[in-house]
Write a protein that binds this DNA or RNA. Structure first.
Lengths: 279, 279
DNA sequence: GCAAATTTGTTCGTATGTATT
DNA sequence: CAATACATACGAACAAATTTG
């Protein structure tokens, strides 16, 4: 039995998009036009377009039309520690350097600082009792004016008691909290564990990242637990990145310098074109 | 101006799901029932349910009903090299060990082996001319009888010429291709670069992993380029994992043994409950 | 094993609302 | 303000898959 009508129409449009007949940014015919071309009711046409929307191929704009999506240039975050600085990617100074190295423009407003009760994952990862107080430093980051990540770092209150008072400063800690903790408490970074997950965005996240409200684009959520010299966790950093414009890189062992650069070119070659897993 | 009716209905159902009134696995009322309860047409009810479906909260089954989704226990793959064996996660022997370490049951049928022409990413990453021949070894992997990953490793034909003839064997190379290359050509693993991306599944992948056909669940696609002692790439491994049941872990520096174990508990604590990024 | 009932899926038609040009 | 374009909502009929009797 053939596919339902709306699928047939959707697949025809999909082929036009993937073959380049409808290039990124192009406007699809309007619903009444498609109704005439494919001799289907408007509801069926709308169902076909919705199918494309759910797959992230097109995007509809009320009052304007339906357009083939333009993929943003992906940004690469290195998770493994830098062999020179010993810093992991995505945080403070390391973030700004990595953005500039990719020829792009970083911006981060001062963090919001709050005192919260540790619960669930936060308490477990920091090894503090459930309900005890932690400092939460919440940071928004932009690249080329576009929202790029939402990061919250949690520190046990015991660090503040031990002398790291500036953790509770409302402004930025320059050149970075990692650096500050090393100076004040002697903690060396480059001992951490990252966990990388993917999930649907929450409403606030969808708003901040300007994601389509159909739940189509998911977000990466990374959990970084950092340990001090004695192996005790002293920091948990949770970061959310939109999955449609972010990728991660991990280096193991001594990887040639060539392979560390010019990665952006490979990353940008849309996975939609190269299909290394086809049969 | 309030939300449209279908959204109001969807959000009421969403609250029932998230508050536990409708626990995972529960059956939602049928469409005719919802029609009566919310005094909306069947089409509007269906739109509300579709909204929940697009967010991955429920799943409809033709002829049966609509059910609250049950999240599978996530599986963790370690990307950074094992400090003892020097092996990266997700490949050959390392895969089986990691699965058993998490108390689960690995299964992998023998790989399919093909000769292909290198194009795009494959040629670039392996540093071979576009169009030259490569050996592709394609492997399906299961955990607890469920499809878990689809992996293809590419090797330049020059390795076969240099003596690694078994790369073209149809069956498995025990205890693993990495081990074999070290024996025959002296390549040491533990020099590689991983790139982690997320995208919509292709039709074959959705079929193999039994993903819902609405494009809701996306897949991780990881690209691992391995380098020999001279810094020349000798292998590219592309792996696809369903994002709804997989997570990744990266260790940097000497992380305490405690933090390497008991990770599964933290990972399983559904991100749907703990909301570390809320305002 | 078959038929009926139940439940979601597809397709049409129609009317009205809202945002953009 | 008018025309265009997508969004919401209702009603109706039949199809396909599953469960029940």
């Amino acid at each position: 039995m053939p596919d339902p009508l709306y699928r047939q129409i959707a697949e025809k449009l999909q082929r036009m998009i993937e073959s380049g007949v409808l290039p990124p940014g192009a406007k699809l015919p309007t619903e009444p036009e498609l109704t005439r071309v494919y001799k289907a009711s408007r509801n069926t046409i709308r169902q076909a377009v919705r199918w494309l929307t759910n797959r992230g191929l097109v995007q509809t704009r009320l009052g304007q039309g339906t357009y083939v999506v333009q993929r943003a240039r992906p940004f690469l975050t290195t998770l493994s520690a830098d062999p020179d600085t010993g810093l992991g990617g995505g945080e403070g100074e390391a973030y700004r350097e990595e953005v500039r190295a990719q020829g792009r423009d970083p911006f981060a407003p001062p963090p919001r600082v709050e005192i919260r009760q540790a619960t669930g994952v936060i308490a477990e990862e920091l090894g503090v009792p459930d309900g005890s107080s932690v400092v939460a430093r919440r940071q928004q980051r932009y690249i080329d004016e576009a929202a790029f990540s939402l990061q919250t770092s949690y520190y046990p209150m015991s660090l503040v008691d031990a002398g790291a008072e500036r953790l509770m400063d409302a402004g930025s800690i320059e050149p970075g909290a990692v650096h500050y903790l090393r100076e004040v408490l002697g903690f060396r970074q480059a001992r951490y564990r990252d966990r990388i997950t993917v999930r649907a965005p929450r409403a606030e996240e969808a708003g901040f990242f300007k994601l389509p409200d159909n739940g189509r684009v998911s977000v990466f959520e990374t959990f970084r637990t950092a340990y001090d010299g004695a192996g005790k966790p002293f920091r948990l950093t949770v970061t959310v990145f939109p999955a449609d414009r972010n990728q991660f890189v991990v280096f193991a062992g001594e990887v040639p310098a060539d392979a560390r650069k010019a990665l952006t070119a490979v990353a940008a070659s849309a996975t939609g074109n190269a299909r290394p897993n086809d049969a």
